[in-house]
Amino acid sequence: MKILIIEDEPELAKSIESYLSGQGYSCELAVNYQQAIEKVSVYHYDCILLDLMLPGGNGMDVLNELKLQNKEDGVIIISAKNAVDDKIQGLKLGADDYLSKPFHLSELSARLFSVIRRRNFANSNIIQQGNLKIDLLAKTVDVGGNAVMLTKKELDLLLFFIGNKNRVISKNALAEHLSGDLADMLDNHDFIYAHIKNLKRKLTDAGYGNFLKTLYGNGYRWEG
């Protein structure tokens, strides 16, 4: 899977690259508008991570360029502006998602996973891991043919883990993912335990082994 990271802040770009490489993605970097345009014109990427404020131009114009060239690359906007207008405009211009800075790399990875799945497996989007099968279109999960009834939150959580396979996910990232913007206003993040506990129990009951590891009580890792 090829990813283009268009981000002028080298440290952030490096972090993203490092995290995603660990996930098995191959990443390329573009640090300004000119580079970005050159790369998107020449190559095809499974997903482009696009910062809107770029030296030499506006990230929105990269979207326009993609549209002009009929490119089908997935795009996730990562912006510091967090402006609703930008979000709406970006999505209208063909971006798949919008993530405002600052964000957890695990959140980015989960979204990236979801965008690529949606783009590449439009007709039958099924994730298979061992005897666990997730149908993303029907939103059903089964283990060895036995349907597992998951709540919306639990399915969300499962996909988040799968999108960050073998990576350590902080409790904070999970809380922010599940609560939207509200996590930092909460005094504790205990609410995520209930979801994780239920998810684990349902999968174990259905015969799926314990793939979710708890690390020091502060993080989780989905192994597979």
């Binding site: 802040e9 993203i16 790399l105």
Partner: peptide
């Protein structure tokens, strides 16, 4: 965002 990403790494 940089600090956040470094912590995640």
């Amino acid at each position: 965002a940089i600090v956040q990403s470094k912590l995640d790494l």
